Amino acid sequence: MRIYLVAGELSGDILGAGLMRAIKARHPEAEFRGIGGPRMIAEGFDSLYPLETLSVMGLVEVIKHLPELVRVRRHLRRDALAWQPDVMVGIDAPDFTLGLERQLRETGIPTAHYVSPSVWAWRQGRVKGIARAVDVMMTFLPFEAAFYERHHVPVAFVGHPLADELPLVNDRLAARHELGLAAEAPVLAMLPGSRANEIRFLGRTFLDSAARLIGRVEGLQVVIPAATPQRHEELAALLVDYPTLRGRICLVEGQSRDAMVACDAVLLASGTAALEAMLCHRPMVVAYRMAPATHWLAQRLVKTDWISLPNLIARETLVPELIQDAATPEAIAEHLMIWLGDERARQSLEARFAAMHAQLQRGASERAAETVLALAERRALPQAADVLEKDS
């Protein structure tokens, strides 16, 4: 059994290593080759290039590295054709891997793609190219699988690895103890983002919201897990201008998951953090601000009713989304008061999130392995329709 894998970035390396372990559990003799990172290499992967080869962000950087990326893809095509794998799997990095998948599929090598690009949200016409590139798309989320089914692209909903990682029952009091927070007082977690621009656009807005809430919620504790040491410095510098928050704010480095489990509600920038908060079963308010030109462009390109994953998965508005001019300290504080002031509403949403968590906790690596092996062995693919529940 020979499997060609091409992963991009650290997240792809984590997914690739999990996929390899699941495949080796069924086929210990399986061989793996392509591009991967240290986790995949530790599983016995033969990587022809460093993982960072595909980790190019931003238009200018992509253009600068385009000749090298084209050369790498040509080399991988020649190498795969010489090695003759039973199946090729691209893991994320769609701008690079889908092109290689199409080229190899045209030669008769079965191909799969692991992690759907956001084709459902913008540039939906890309689905035609995806249909030419893959024998099956493996998705994390049910609404993604429903999108591919509507467009007649073979799909396998495998569940989300993060849902497998996080427990269905968590311990709020233990997390508060870990962070040094009072056990009984209400807690708000604030995650203003992992990028410098997010702190620039959201940092003061979030802190202004916290100042309003501290005046309204008795004993409120606010924990801010900074994503990196640099974000910690930037947030600490902002806090100097908020003397009224001293003693009420707990600024920590990392520990975002502990902060989410410990809290009663979360205020966060849109992104993967919203999914993680959902999987910790915590009510949230999603807020995002960006440069005006970026917002103008996004309004014209993005075709979706929601931006946060909890709402997208549910196909309804479970949590408030306050975008651009709507993301004011006053509006944020009012929406957070619903979760901090109404225990019944909070518990109801926590129960809904726990049910959604269970839907996504499907053993993603094992299901992805079953799909890949079905392709390699020319068997019928696992069915996605039984879990889609009419696009829910």
Rank of each mutant, 00 (worst) to 15 (best):
G90L: 05
V115Q: 15
V89D: 08
Q383E: 14
N311T: 02
R71Y: 01
L220T: 12
F353H: 07
A210E: 14
G34T: 03
L188V: 08
K128F: 14
K64S: 08
G37L: 02
L239Y: 11
D171M: 13
H113S: 01
Q255P: 08
A131C: 06
E334L: 12
R346L: 03
V217K: 12
A291Q: 13
W122D: 09
A93K: 04
A376F: 14
Y148V: 07
R362D: 09
S118T: 15
V222G: 09
D13A: 07
L188A: 01
L98E: 09
G16H: 01
P110D: 11
H335A: 15
E316K: 12
L191A: 07
R246A: 15
V285A: 03
R195S: 06
D46T: 15
A185E: 10
H357K: 10
L166P: 05
R176Q: 01
P283E: 06
P192M: 15
A80C: 13
A364I: 07
H65I: 08
H27G: 01
R71Q: 13
L191D: 05
G159E: 04
V87E: 02
V261R: 04
A314H: 01
L104T: 02
A82F: 06
P28S: 05
A326K: 13
V153A: 00
I91H: 00
L98W: 13
R176S: 00
P243T: 06
R2Q: 01
V286M: 05
H75T: 13
L188N: 03
P154V: 10
P382S: 01
L336A: 03
M290Y: 07
E316G: 12
G37P: 08
R231T: 13
I338H: 12
R231Q: 11
M284A: 14
S118N: 12
P292K: 01
L336E: 06
M278S: 08
H113D: 05
T272L: 10
A259C: 14
A236V: 06
I323E: 09
L104G: 02
A182G: 03
A226D: 08
L238D: 07
W296G: 15
H65N: 12
L166F: 03
D258F: 12
I3W: 02
G44Y: 15
Q84S: 10
R362K: 14
V127D: 15
A17L: 07
E9F: 09
T294F: 01
R26K: 14
E389F: 03
A351D: 13
N197E: 12
V115Y: 10
T328C: 13
H281N: 06
S308V: 02
L19N: 04
I109H: 02
L5D: 00
T304A: 12
P186R: 08
H151T: 04
G99N: 13
H335M: 09
L168P: 10
Q299L: 08
T244F: 10
T53E: 05
R315W: 01
A287R: 05
W339L: 03
L239T: 09
L54Y: 08
R352L: 14
E316I: 05
R78D: 13
